[in-house]
């Protein structure tokens, strides 16, 4: 009974508001540093909080590499856009944007194919409503030469 009350928002809520384009395989050399670019797109009509929201109650966008042979040195986010929601000024990402990760390749890792896995945590809104914080898994194929 309760679920039938909210059918339209149920469908809207289930839609992923941010699309993470599957990254191309990364070819790396042992002992070197390498940069990887993750391409993302926020669906039209929505925005996600940036990595540095002005209000500490807001949930920031964050990419975390959780598992794999490479060491994460830094994750860089683009410049955010400022929009007004009610009386608040909010820093957001909209449309297409990129996140850069700098990895270090340990000298002692095995050659061959491997995978880096990560998680993108975000919280999306449109002009009239906000959706529960959500995470998207990210998988990066790695080839160590």
């Amino acid at each position: 009974m309760a679920s039938s009350l909210l059918l339209p928002s149920c469908c809207l809520a289930q839609l992923n508001k941010i699309v993470v384009h599957p990254p191309d395989p990364l070819t790396v050399v042992r002992g070197a540093s390498v940069e990887q670019t993750l391409e993302l797109a926020v669906l039209p009509g929505f925005h996600v909080n940036s990595d540095k929201p002005k209000d500490e109650t807001l949930i920031p966008l964050k990419l975390t590499w959780t598992n794999g042979p490479l060491e994460t040195q830094s994750v860089s986010y683009p410049e955010a856009k400022e929009i007004k929601v009610g009386s608040q000024q909010v820093m957001v990402f909209t449309g297409k944007f990129q996140i850069q990760t700098k990895f270090h390749v340990p000298a002692g890792i095995a050659k061959g194919s491997s995978t880096m896995t990560g998680k993108l945590h975000y919280q999306a809104c449109n002009d009239t409503m906000c959706f529960r914080p959500s995470s998207v898994a990210v998988t990066l194929p790695v080839s160590v030469e």
Binding site: A2, L6, S9, C10, L12, A13, M129, C130, F131
Partner: peptide, 9 residues
């Protein structure tokens, strides 16, 4: 109350 994926409800 229907899942409450969107707020406010």
């Amino acid at each position: 109350y229907g899942g409450l994926d969107a707020l406010p409800t």
